[in-house]
């Protein structure tokens, strides 16, 4: 009985740690499949985290908080879209600038909210949580956002490979010139993909500040945006691999906490590195095959589109 409890706790904790990566990563995957490389994920997540937190505390409704966070992420993505798609600025430089902007702006917005207490959304949704048995308590930690993250890879797989919209998305990312010649509106599709990516980043950030560690502090995303970006590339733009990478990261994060709790005689800083390191190493090994990487990479990734006509 006790072992099942521990196992359940590990599974739940892993899923929760993987959720922000899964959601932000999937948003970025869609944007990149359309041929746009947005390196601003970290910044958009931070905006989502601060705006989501403030929105929830101010309105008392986590749902409004999440919506506000998605809008904030999408707003930042819109800035990116205008700069890179309409004005054809360099995507890499603009994305980096977006992250720097997001780090600073989220800190500015959230400056009065550091240390404000907030109950986790799980407690909000299930009022009887604290009285339930430990097993049920664990299960109830799986809030709707986690369930969304669990379903996401399968939805994404179906969307990308089985629907017409997914086919058009892949086509635009493969060759914008051909898509344009066939009469598809490359810019409109890319704007939609980038905005969707921003909204998902905002949602992922808000999950961190509303559910994972219910509080706001500066730079609390702590590089997860970058990991999400790396996961997209190493997963060779495939949703199921992205899910596996996210779960791996989540699992090593939990293992690291356990190791610290057990009082392992290793520097906590080294342990804190572990999830990032392990994820990157494993994914590099997975995506070692250069041909496969080239085959699956959206061929037009990062290239500005200009309709020559």
């Amino acid at each position: 009985m006790h072992e099942t409890e521990i196992l359940l706790a590990v599974v739940v904790a892993t899923l929760r740690a993987a959720t922000p990566l899964m959601i932000a990563g999937f948003g970025e995957l869609i944007a990149e499949r359309s041929g746009v490389l947005n390196l601003g994920v970290e910044g958009m997540m931070l905006m989502g985290a601060s705006v989501g937190f403030i929105g929830t505390v101010a309105t008392g409704s986590p749902i409004l908080g999440f919506v506000a966070a998605m809008l904030a992420g999408a707003a930042l993505a819109l800035v990116f879209g205008v700069l890179t798609l309409s004005l054809m600025a360099n995507q890499v430089a603009t994305g980096l600038a977006l992250t720097i902007f997001g780090v600073g702006f989220s800190a500015l917005v959230g400056v009065g909210w550091i240390g404000t207490p907030l109950q986790g959304i799980a407690t909000d949704i299930w009022p009887g949580l604290s009285k339930a048995s430990p097993m049920v308590q664990q299960l109830m930690l799986l809030d709707p956002v986690v369930w969304l993250a669990i379903l996401l890879p399968f939805i994404a797989q179906r969307f990308i490979y089985r629907t017409r919209a997914g086919l058009i998305l892949r086509a635009v990312g493969e060759s914008h010139d051909v898509a344009h010649a066939l009469g598809y509106s490359v810019l409109r599709i890319r704007y939609l993909a980038v905005l969707f990516g921003g909204a998902m980043s905002g949602l992922a950030g808000a999950y961190l500040s509303l559910a994972y560690t219910p509080m706001w502090s500066d730079n609390m995303v702590a590089g997860r945006g970058w990991i999400a970006l790396a996961l997209v590339v190493f997963s060779t733009w495939k949703p199921l691999w992205l899910a596996i990478g996210s779960l791996l990261f989540g699992f090593v994060t939990i293992a690291q906490f356990q190791a610290e709790a057990l009082g392992l005689d290793v520097s906590p800083h080294l342990l804190a590195m572990l999830p990032y390191l392990a994820t990157i190493v494993v994914l590099v090994l997975i995506s070692r095959d250069a041909t496969r990487l080239k085959l699956n990479a959206p061929a037009a990734l990062g290239r500005p589109f200009h309709a020559t006509a």
């Binding site: 017409r164 086919l167 892949r170 086509a171 493969e174």
Partner: peptide
């Protein structure tokens, strides 16, 4: 005006 990574039918569908 074909997409290399797609199948013939997918290309035609587009």
């Amino acid at each position: 005006s074909l997409f290399e990574s797609l199948t013939v039918a997918e290309n035609i569908a587009l």
